[in-house]
Design a protein around this nucleic acid. Structure first.
Lengths: 348, 348
DNA sequence: TTGTATGCGTTATCAT
DNA sequence: ATGATAACGCATACAA
């Protein structure tokens, strides 16, 4: 490898001078400047980041740690926004993908504790409590969607309740009366009550229940379908809904877009039409939802808002601008009304 | 930060001993071992990776550099596979997202040149020649889809020609005779011929033309539609196809799945049904294609194959096992026959 | 305007 | 079985 020293020798100056030329910081004669740059170029010099980080105590890197980019492409949007926001603030951003298995999570935790990065935006969804506890408390970490009662870190939470509320209200407004909810049931509320900690599932269900109650609509137990929020699960649920006459719903609120897309697929398998036979609303606002048949109505997460809030807190922690109690803020969301909930197919 | 020295002091031993206990490498007495581990635990010690990398000369990190995870979710699949493959081989993997703009690309190049990682899997799609040239030739780099005549690095190329060939043959087999091709036209062939370098577009078109010729089918110029491979472009093309009677095609081969999904959307806007009025085949094999209405027929990229080949070459370069001429291998692909090309909707 | 010297945290070599 | 020490490449305080 080409080092500062190599460049210095070639340019006939000291390593210090090379450093000053390349990084700035003090005045050098034009003659020296040119010689050094020329030498660096000819040798193909590049700063050794390990050495700089060691000296500096920081890496200039912010890591985004998410489980499975392929689980929901909403993460893909986050990656893009984080990248831009980091660039704007002089950081580089890297993405680390974790699985649910504890090994990768442990790796991720080690990552931050070992100062491979200055700060970390860490998706807490499905993150076991003990892993969170193992995080070094005085590192710069912002969690995404940590719903614990007494969070140890700053966290940006998703608008779970709000999202379901908006979606359900919307279906009601569109004329639905018998609305199913896919992704949680009352047992989730019990778990939440028992542990004293909300969950994404319980909050989402609450939003739905609130909207139904507001409208004076009864909720039948079989309308609450507690499943994982994944494509293929949605397919099964859709088939079930269409085949099982008992359910007889005219609207479905899904906890995310994967579920909704799968559900529409399953309904189609069973011969049910969306929105004519049943209306469907998702949540997230994935890009592909704008191109499905029918186009997906959804409550879109405000990703730029989420990223700005998260990164804002993170950088305050890194810079030491803020050093107080863990903060909790909520990301925004907004309704995107499309054909799957009966909106007429406009030209765009 | 807690350093080796801190742990050593607390355990009453030397830093060297702590290092040996934690990393292994020589025998230590049980008594010392215990004391050191206890101290490290109590202090919450974590290895400083910058220091280790500096000493070691390697980071244990492999970076995957792709442009826009959201451009095509095929990248999301790649991320997952790269992650697993790296884990298996003792590396950590990080993802860096670039944009087409030269600034981010320059950053990415700097990344590898500055030894932030031991090796890099770099998506060459849309990568300007001069950026590639700026890459340090003796670093471990494997390019994804570098089609240049005389590549400077090992590269895994996508099965462009093969993919179109398979897709077109399949449509012909399904009974199509008037097949459009979306994503390139003959001007791409001219550009390729002029520069002496193939492009993804020219290769894909060649595959299509070959299949048509094999079957003795004429190709009308207006069937070749040279557009970007993106969702919203597909929508426009779909609307155009359905409205413009002149085209009158019974099958469409799309250069990727985004285009295909958009196209189906556009066709639906114009009242055309897939596959009854026109059959559609995409390319990539994105997950969501299995859940669209209709399910998307596509030529799926063999992502595990791609990743294995790429990472295999990369690690040989890192280890110095191979030091010869740049190699070029092609990733596999296979037809996934679904409803959008008239396959009956089976239960799964 | 430029050069010298020191230390960041780790690991490997030598010595004990 | 363990400790002292040097070196990795860079950035900076200090000296000239």
């Amino acid at each position: 490898m080409v080092t500062l020293k190599d460049v210095a020798e070639r340019a006939g100056v000291s390593p210090a001078t090379v450093s000053y030329v390349l990084r700035g910081g003090r005045h050098v004669s034009k003659w020296t400047d040119e010689r050094v740059r020329k030498a660096a170029n000819e040798l193909g010099y590049a700063t050794n980041m390990a050495a700089r980080s060691l000296k500096y105590g920081r890496t200039g890197v912010i890591e985004l740690v998410v489980r499975g980019l392929d689980v929901s492409s909403i993460y893909a949007k986050m990656v893009t926004h984080v990248k831009h926001a980091c660039s704007d603030r002089g950081y580089r951003s890297l993405v680390m993908q974790t699985e649910q298995d504890s090994r990768t999570l442990r790796d991720a935790v080690g990552e931050i504790n070992s100062q491979s990065c200055d700060g970390m935006l860490l998706d807490a969804f499905g993150l076991p409590k003990d892993v969170i506890d193992r995080l070094n408390g005085n590192r710069a970490i912002v969690l995404l969607d940590d719903l614990s009662k007494r969070p140890a870190f700053d966290t940006v939470v998703m608008p779970h309740r709000e999202s379901s509320l908006i979606a359900t209200r919307y279906l009601i407004e569109r004329g639905c009366r018998r609305i199913a909810f896919v992704g949680a049931d009352r047992s989730d509320l019990q778990v939440a009550a028992g542990s004293g900690e909300d969950s994404a599932r319980s909050l989402r269900l609450e939003g739905y229940l609130q909207a139904m109650e507001e409208a004076g609509l009864a909720v039948r137990p079989e309308w609450l379908i507690p499943v994982d929020w994944r494509y293929f699960v949605g397919v099964d649920v859709g088939r079930g809904l269409a085949c099982d006459g008992r359910l007889d719903v005219d609207g479905v609120v899904c906890c995310n877009d994967s579920l909704a897309i799968g559900l529409i697929r399953g309904l189609a398998d069973a011969g049910a039409r969306v929105p004519d036979d049943v209306m469907v609303v998702g949540s997230d606002g994935v890009t592909v939802g704008e191109f499905t048949v029918p186009r997906l109505s959804t409550v879109a997460l405000d990703v730029p808002d989420l990223v700005n809030k998260g990164l804002g807190m993170l950088i305050e922690r890194i810079d030491g601008t803020y050093d107080g109690e863990p903060r909790r803020v909520t990301a925004g969301c907004s309704l995107v009304a499309k054909e799957s909930a009966g909106e007429s197919a406009s030209a765009d």
